[in-house]
Design a protein around this nucleic acid. Sequence first.
DNA 1: CGGGCGCATATTGTATACGACAGTGGGCGT
DNA 2: ACGCCCACTGTCGTATACAATATGCGCCCG
Lengths: 235, 235
Amino acid sequence: MAVTAGAGGTRSVPGSLGHRTVSAAVAEALRQRILSGALAPGFQLRQDALAEEFGISRIPIREALLQLEAGGLVKIVPHRGAVVSGLSVEEIEDVFQLRVFLEPQLLILSARHLTPEDFSELRSLRDEYGAALKAGRIELWGDLNRRFHLGLLRHAGRPRSLSIIAGLLQDCDRPTRLQLSVTGEVARADMEHTTILDLCEAGEIVAAANLLRVHVEHAGHSLIEIYRRSAASAA
Amino acid sequence: MAVTAGAGGTRSVPGSLGHRTVSAAVAEALRQRILSGALAPGFQLRQDALAEEFGISRIPIREALLQLEAGGLVKIVPHRGAVVSGLSVEEIEDVFQLRVFLEPQLLILSARHLTPEDFSELRSLRDEYGAALKAGRIELWGDLNRRFHLGLLRHAGRPRSLSIIAGLLQDCDRPTRLQLSVTGEVARADMEHTTILDLCEAGEIVAAANLLRVHVEHAGHSLIEIYRRSAASAA
DNA sequence: CGGGCGCATATTGTATACGACAGTGGGCGT
DNA sequence: ACGCCCACTGTCGTATACAATATGCGCCCG
């Protein structure tokens, strides 16, 4: 369909991109905007405006918003529209506490089943992460971090836990990115990732799990510390 | 809207019900059907058929399906429709391990903040539960159990954990209901609920948390035991 | 002069209609 | 005879059009 509408004007729906449906593409685009902070928490998303901007009708917009609501990125109130949802300090603390408990546990289950291919993939993710760090490509950081963590835990045989962690990682990502002047933290994370990987490959699974726990704990404390100072936004 | 279409036939959308939109009502109706087992895992949901059955157009159906996919009840494949998703034994084990881990922890945080009103509400839920048990109203069981558990944990100050547990409880519900000839288990659960409530009210928080852990553990083991025997369905 | 009611408007929710994709069966070529 | 290509069919995805609902403002009444 897409490109018949020359009328639409200024737009850029990446139908060319790998997505199979327009609504999925829009969902992805909006997700990026929200995670990147371009759309601040509390911002109201109006269907008409989005539809016009993307040069499409409101139906795919609505379905995209539904998908985002599933991921907790927006909140939809019937007849009143969708607003970008933010996380309170309380919620962030909760998210990190869950990660601290769940991730090491899964790593212990998963580590012994990591294959050489897994290690190679994880190393390449870590390399990309380091490269993104050096290049200052902040917008890549969250996704790479997420894929790294999930890759580590992939073989734990706990599918539900894994999908929960995926959600937690995504929710960590946004507030983290907002206060990302702390590149020191990211560099530290990079080093810790490497060490965790080495420990896993060496069979030092418990040590790896402990380091992972510390790694997440530290990231959480650091983020909450920063978050508390700029006590402005609310949910 | 709705009722202009007398043509539809077997109408059942309860617009009278508290729902504010049709799609939400449809989502709820389908959720009930799936959780009650009326729609078996693997069943393909065709939008046309559902639209005709409810006497509405496909749009609210689509949005309802999106919402269900968010809750993990169905899986949507682009251009190929939605199928009811089932849980593998592996997933059920995971769900119960998560509950065993999370619920006692939250109870310890929540118990001391339960108000007299909370206790009164929880007792009345427990009473309803017992009444449903005696009356054999199986379809009420899951919802009451869910509300009871969530009510206990309400004041833990861990919003994200709470919503995760809500999802876990929902996912427990369906497989549990399928094999519900084990009324003995339900009766046992009823007694344990009462004891947990008493312990909380008496301030024996740790004891309550321990009993809650045992309660969930037992329910999990029992369900998995049964589930393994009738090893038929898959995800 | 203040408070409650009703209309106007903006936005969302739903219906209908059309175009597009995946799966399938028959016809054709080799 | 076997395999490939093409048109067909069923279903989904999206566009357009209409109806319903929430909000803000002005007006009437107390």
